[in-house]
Simulated assay, not measured.
Amino acid sequence: MVKQLAASARLPLSDPRRSSLDVSWSFSLRRTPGSDELATRMTLAALTTVGGAQAACERIAEATGLACRYVLDYGFARRYRVTVGLDESRCAVSVTDYGYDQPAAPPGGTPEVPTPSYETTRLCQELSECATDGMKLDGIQVHHALDGAVLVRFRAGLPIAPVSPVSPIVSEPPSADDAGPPPVAPDTSRSPGARG
């Protein structure tokens, strides 16, 4: 998916093969309680703004919040980053603390890196359950680095809500009944420049 997004972005704007909707945004958050809920709201607002169908936007935002919660629980960096990319009707989400300041050792000593374990499997199941009504989450990946950094990413379909065409406002001249009395011309007969 990342390869497709990059390939589409390299095409000239006039090329018909270029996506009509190709956008991505990224934001970083401090590792604080409730930052996963903030990430959920920000993702929902962004997807809704580009015109995604409301139910799909809510599911993707919910899945993003789950990924953020996982990074908060198992990562150790002071910040983490959420990246959302949209190419036509496909959405790719990545949540990671790679590249941020990893402490020399997390509180309590050596980081406990959960290898394919119950928690990782449970996250994948919860992410899969976010998909309903024909929407499918796929490409779910969870990576743990030896330094404790965590990456969670997934893809989902995001149908764009149909936009109703805006009808132009046509002003019709008022009818004789609606016109009212004609405007009165100002009386300039007594102005300083008037003669007589």
Rank of each mutant, 00 (worst) to 15 (best):
V2R: 14
V82D: 10
F76I: 08
A9N: 08
A46C: 05
C91F: 01
L44W: 09
V71G: 01
R17F: 06
A161H: 06
L47N: 02
L72V: 03
L127D: 10
V84T: 15
F154S: 05
A53G: 09
W25T: 15
M135W: 02
P116Q: 04
I60Y: 01
T40L: 12
I160S: 07
A179C: 05
V113C: 09
P12A: 09
V163R: 14
E126D: 14
S14P: 00
T49C: 02
T120P: 00
A6C: 04
G85Q: 12
A161C: 02
D101A: 14
S128W: 00
G51P: 04
D101V: 11
R18N: 07
Y98V: 12
A39E: 00
A63Y: 06
P165A: 15
E172P: 02
E62M: 12
P103K: 08
S164E: 14
R41P: 00
I160C: 06
A149N: 01
L47P: 02
L5G: 06
D187P: 05
A9I: 03
A67Y: 04
L44E: 15
A7N: 11
T120M: 12
R78D: 15
C130Q: 06
R78V: 13
S128L: 10
A92M: 14
T132A: 13
S24I: 01
K3D: 13
I169H: 13
S167V: 10
P107N: 12
V113H: 01
A194K: 10
A63R: 07
M135T: 14
Y98D: 07
C68A: 13
V84M: 07
L86Q: 07
D15L: 04
K136R: 15
S35I: 06
A145T: 15
P33F: 00
T40E: 10
A194Y: 08
Q125K: 11
V184G: 05
L123F: 08
V152L: 07
P106R: 15
R41N: 09
S24H: 07
S171D: 11
C57G: 11
S20N: 06
E112P: 03
T83W: 00
A61R: 03
A145K: 08
L127W: 09
L137C: 12
M135V: 15
G34A: 08
G75M: 03
M1P: 07
A7K: 08
A61F: 06
L11P: 04
G157I: 00
E37C: 05
G148M: 14
S191G: 14
L29I: 01
G180T: 13
L86W: 03
S175T: 15
R69I: 04
D73F: 00
A6D: 13
G148F: 13
S189L: 10
D138V: 03
T64N: 14
Q54V: 07
T96E: 10
S26F: 00
S189A: 13
P159D: 05
W25S: 12
M1K: 06
G134Q: 05
P186I: 10
G157R: 07
Q141G: 01
A53R: 15
G180R: 12
A156L: 07
P33H: 04
V50L: 15
L38Y: 01
R122L: 13
K136T: 15
G65Y: 03
P33I: 01
G99M: 03
P181K: 04
L5S: 09
